[in-house]
Design a protein around this nucleic acid. Structure first.
Length: 259
DNA sequence: AATCCTACCAACCGCCCTAAA
DNA sequence: ATTTAGGGCGGTTGGTAGGAT
């Protein structure tokens, strides 16, 4: 192990590792000029570099390529990253294809440093979410009792404001899609025992369902509710995006009932 | 001034896929 | 049908810089 100790910038099995020197960069650039991209394992032999093919490819793709965009990620790029990550998850290369000049590595690093922490905070909040869910269930039971008392005198009033408050109370939870449908239906029948019909149920369900359509939802610069957004690891496949844009949509819908 | 902490990011690793031999 | 080389991808590591204590 003596001469091949695993440290930065030392030789391992004949290959140099660690940070690239300016001279190595120059040799690699020269190689690509002459031979084009590809055949990376030939670089060592043809360019006189003591780097393996993988290392050369990575250096070129992530750092030396002339079409790379330097500098800070712009707010617009950040928005694109957020939207595409919501859609694709950690498929960094797929996301990178939508951001010319940015590499998957760059985007991945950006994501981890800027947003991963929020995801952790969100995960820490999951216990609180469970407590909120319990309170919500209790609330629904109360509502059911209340509704039974009022049922006799209930008129055919479509009170969307009550629905709004119920939805807002639950804004941070992350239900599954079947739960969402069930909840929408339950909320509707709780509040509108006599009036709810298929038409209204379809509407209520679409309200919940629209909340999961992030690309449209985050095409706004409003404050995003990160708690709901970053919980994807824990709730893979059951993502619920809650943000002010959705609530704004809901308010609009409430003001203009959907018939 | 020294130490600690955090953000940033270049580079590596292991796994996987694909095409050619 | 199998093997192998080349390359892509996502996860992780470790060095560095700068700010906070």
């Amino acid at each position: 192990m003596a001469a091949e100790q695993l440290a930065w910038g030392v030789m391992e099995e004949g290959w140099r590792k660690g940070p690239w020197t300016a001279e190595e960069d120059r040799l690699l650039i020269e190689y690509v000029k002459l031979h084009g991209e590809g055949r990376w394992n030939s670089v060592a032999r043809l360019a006189g570099l003591k780097r393996n093919g993988k290392s050369c490819r990575l250096r070129w793709v992530n750092y030396l390529r002339p079409d790379l965009k330097r500098g800070q990620i712009t707010p617009h790029e950040e928005k694109v990253i957020l939207e595409l990550h919501a859609r694709w998850g950690n498929r960094w290369s797929t996301i990178a294809r939508s951001l010319p000049g940015r590499t998957d590595n760059e985007i991945k690093n950006y994501w981890r440093t800027h947003f991963k922490k929020k995801a952790k905070v969100s995960s820490d909040n999951s216990e609180k979410s469970k407590a909120r869910l319990l309170r919500r269930q209790q609330f629904q039971q109360q509502q059911l009792l209340l509704q039974q008392q009022q049922q006799q005198q209930q008129t055919q009033v479509f009170d969307m404001r009550r629905l709004m408050s119920l939805l807002e109370e639950n804004e941070n939870r992350v239900p599954t899609l079947p739960q969402m449908k069930q909840d929408a239906s339950a909320a509707a029948t709780t509040i509108f025992p006599n009036t709810i019909d298929d038409h209204h149920q379809v509407f209520l369900y679409s309200v919940f369902n629209n909340s999961a359509a992030l690309p449209e939802a985050t095409n706004h610069d409003q404050d995003i509710n990160w708690d709901g957004l970053w919980n994807m690891d824990e709730f893979s496949g059951n993502i619920y995006y809650s943000n002010s844009a959705n609530r704004a949509t809901l308010r609009t819908s409430a003001a203009t009932p959907y018939y």
